[in-house]
């Protein structure tokens, strides 16, 4: 794996970890207004990176820049670099469709395809790449649903409509759907914000298992969640990355007074 030099706000203390992604001076503009400004951030392989910050701080905007979702918003413009395995995904000639296959995404609200069954939801991404072989699909369904901690609950009703599942199950179905295509990175945009505490816990629990297979970047407005699930944390404020470091250090010994103010609950 290509190992570009990492400069983080906390110094090069994680040099030994391989990088999966990295942004260099990444900015996102909506029209003339910058939603994210000059963010440089490493994303370590098989680790969970949490992005925290108050509402409107640009953390979701940043996340969506990591798999070129901004391509779908006509007024959005991205500058700077986002490297995936050392290659800039914004370079000319890079196919955004290919990038999104390698960098999957789970959204705030569960969004399974309502007309499809549980099974067909999971295999929808595989069918897009032309995999039709029944054995392969069956295998992928069991593997992804198991990884998403949903297999035991739905293995007897794979043909049931996806909307018959509970909200928490639907979100895990969406995770399974994203995992089925075996992405290298999984972006999670406040994946538990629409869920009840028990569903939230089941998703948090599965993340530590998941990171063995996939690199995770999670946006959360819940600081306890970031502290519980992540290995690294980046704190965003008004479109800028204020501080980045090991979660432990960010939460116990933040270097920046603004981070400390947020962590200790003085605002946000």
């Amino acid at each position: 794996m290509i190992r570009p030099e990492v400069k983080t706000t906390s110094g090069n203390v994680h040099e030994e970890l391989p990088l999966r992604m990295e942004t260099r001076g990444l900015s996102v503009f909506y029209g003339k207004k910058a939603g994210v400004r000059e963010v440089s951030l490493p994303i370590y392989n098989n680790r969970v990176t949490a992005l925290i910050g108050p509402s409107g701080c640009g953390k979701t905007t940043f996340l969506r820049a990591l798999n070129r979702m901004h391509d779908l918003t006509p007024i959005a413009r991205v500058t700077g670099e986002a490297l995936l395995d050392g290659q800039n995904i914004y370079e000319r000639g890079v196919d955004p469709v290919e990038i999104r296959r390698r960098v999957g995404m789970v959204f705030q609200k569960p969004n399974p395809f309502p007309t499809l069954s549980v099974y067909d939801n999971v295999v929808s991404g595989l069918k897009l790449v032309g995999i039709r072989h029944k054995g392969l699909l069956d295998e992928a369904v069991e593997r992804s649903l198991t990884q998403a901690a949903l297999w035991d609950e739905v293995k007897d009703r794979l043909r049931a409509p996806s909307m018959s599942l509970s909200g928490g199950q639907q979100q895990r179905l969406c995770i399974a759907r994203a995992l089925a295509v075996q992405p290298e990175v999984l972006l999670m945009d406040e994946p538990t914000s629409a869920l009840d505490p028990i569903s939230t816990q089941s998703i948090e629990d599965l993340m530590s298992e998941l990171k063995k297979h996939v690199t995770i970047v999670i946006v959360t407005h819940n600081m306890q969640q970031a502290a519980r699930v992540s290995d690294f944390t980046g704190y965003f404020l008004t479109g800028e990355l204020v501080e980045f470091g090991p979660t432990n250090q960010i939460f116990t010994n933040p270097k920046d007074p603004r981070t400390e103010a947020y962590i200790t609950g003085r605002f946000g």
Partner: peptide, 21 residues
């Protein structure tokens, strides 16, 4: 977005997400 995030092309988004819905 669900379809796009799976690596669907525009037409595939139409077929997978929009028309069924």
């Amino acid at each position: 977005e669900a379809a796009y995030a799976l690596g669907a092309t525009r037409w595939e988004v139409m077929r997978l997400a929009m028309l069924p819905y």
